[in-house]
């Protein structure tokens, strides 16, 4: 049973990391466009077609 002394804090810390990661995603607006973000991984951003997007990305 002594193993619990380690395991319980470990599981609580892991859970805490999960919760912290969730709060981070929330703070960085990652839920504003779920449909778009899901679709964007299919876009070939480095392809030749995408050239103009990158060229105009200057502020």
């Amino acid at each position: 049973m002594n193993v619990l002394v380690f395991l319980i804090p470990v599981s609580l810390i892991l859970g805490g990391i999960g919760a912290a990661a969730f709060i981070w995603t929330l703070k960085t607006d990652q839920y504003d466009d779920p449909a778009g973000d899901a679709a964007r991984i299919l876009l070939d951003e480095d392809g030749p077609d995408a050239g103009p997007i990158e060229d105009s990305k200057e502020n």
Binding site: D32, D33, P34, A35, G36, A39, P52, S56, E58
Partner: peptide
């Protein structure tokens, strides 16, 4: 959409929000 808009001179940035 983003390619068409970003290809225009004078468009600094265009970003689609698919959910909205």
């Amino acid at each position: 959409v983003e390619r068409a808009l970003n290809g225009l001179d004078g468009v600094r940035n265009a970003r689609v929000n698919l959910s909205l």
